[in-house]
């Protein structure tokens, strides 16, 4: 508590109150901060952590759309309703779901994980690379800078599902812009969605287009926090432009980069609409990432809630493990975060 000190209450009249419990003191000191975060904590607890807890529990059951009711009721001829217990009611199933998912009995967990890793790595690498490049360009004074910035950030303002449709439209095999351009240039039109890598390519292009503006803006902000004197000093010392980039720009951007790369990785890993709408898993589910693959495996046909939860728990675990290692790696380099 740096700024606001709660004025101490008038001297306690009673000896019992002279030494309030630790809890009491902590409350006196912190109630204000707690009150300010309370609404968020409640909403998160109800809508994130309760579902999470329930999801974890469901992943150990066999709940699905067909066996979710406790009783089966049938209307009898006389008009009354007869209910009897559902004999196939859902029940605790131990690790069954996990075994089925991880052995590949349902869905293609390992293949999807592989695709997800490629998708995430390539996506974030391009987001960061292009974002950094454009941020550095935009950080220089020049004519029309404001206009460039608006145009380059514009993709951010387009809702994700609209961009997904726009790019699917562009990559349409019969009349899409991409194939029209290829034909105009004298090349053969490509059947984008009938081969795995071209299909994944379309999704990655969409995702890169979507994600660069955020990175660019964040890094541009980061660049502006680097004091200009550092560059001046380096220049006096005769550092080459590349040396200045390595020794000043990159370290200066470190705090920003750490955060945006972590967030970018998490967001891309779970990015549902692009794969779902652009490639739709074509061809034959070969471009599914974990979230979309799990969604189809669990929700097409009879909705399998327990299976969905199992995938949810696995995805969350992968990301948690990743962020723990990420933080540890950064901390080892002397970064306190």
């Amino acid at each position: 508590m740096r700024t606001v000190t709660v004025a101490p209450a008038s001297p306690p009249p009673d000896r019992r109150l002279a030494r309030p419990s630790r809890l009491r003191r902590s409350w006196d000191r912190n109630w204000y901060a707690w009150a300010m975060v309370l609404p968020v904590v409640i909403v998160l607890a109800v809508l994130i952590f309760y579902p999470l807890g329930r999801g974890i529990w469901l992943s150990f059951t066999n709940l699905n759309e067909a066996n979710q009711v406790a009783e089966i009721c049938t209307k009898s001829i006389t008009g009354g309703e007869v209910c009897e217990e559902n004999p196939n009611r859902w029940e605790y199933a131990g690790l069954d779901n996990y075994v089925r998912v991880l052995t590949g009995e349902v869905g293609r967990f390992w293949e999807w994980t592989g695709i997800t890793l490629i998708w995430t790595f390539v996506g974030v690498a391009f987001h960061y690379g292009l974002g950094l490049g454009l941020a550095i360009l935009l950080n220089r004074p020049m004519r029309g800078r404001g206009l460039y910035r608006v145009l380059l950030v514009l993709p951010w303002a387009v809702p994700a599902f609209v961009s997904a449709f726009a790019w699917k439209f562009i990559f349409n095999e019969r009349f899409g812009l991409a194939n029209s351009l290829l034909t105009t240039l004298g090349a053969d039109p490509l059947p984008w969605f009938s081969e795995r890598w071209t299909s994944l390519f379309t999704a990655i292009v969409t995702n890169v287009w979507l994600g660069v503006p955020f990175m660019m803006v964040a890094l541009l902000g980061g660049l502006q926090t680097i004091p200009g004197e550092l560059y001046e000093a380096a220049e006096i010392d005769g550092a080459s432009p590349w040396q200045r980039f390595r020794a000043i720009t990159l370290p200066g951007l470190r705090p920003t980069s750490m955060t945006v790369i972590l967030l970018g990785t998490i967001w891309t890993f779970n990015l549902f609409p692009v794969i779902f709408l652009v490639t739709e898993g074509e061809p034959a589910g070969e471009t599914e990432i974990l979230v979309t693959g799990a969604y189809r495996a669990a929700f097409e046909g009879i909705r399998n809630y327990s299976l969905a939860s199992t995938y949810g728990v696995l995805i969350l675990s992968i990301l948690l493990v990743f962020s723990v290692f990420y933080r540890r790696a950064l901390r080892k380099q002397g970064e306190v975060w």
Binding site: L44, I48, L52, N270, V291, S309, Y311, L316, L320
Partner: peptide, 9 residues
């Protein structure tokens, strides 16, 4: 919360 796979849960 950012890691929450919304579509699934």
């Amino acid at each position: 919360t950012q890691m929450f796979p919304v579509a699934i849960l």
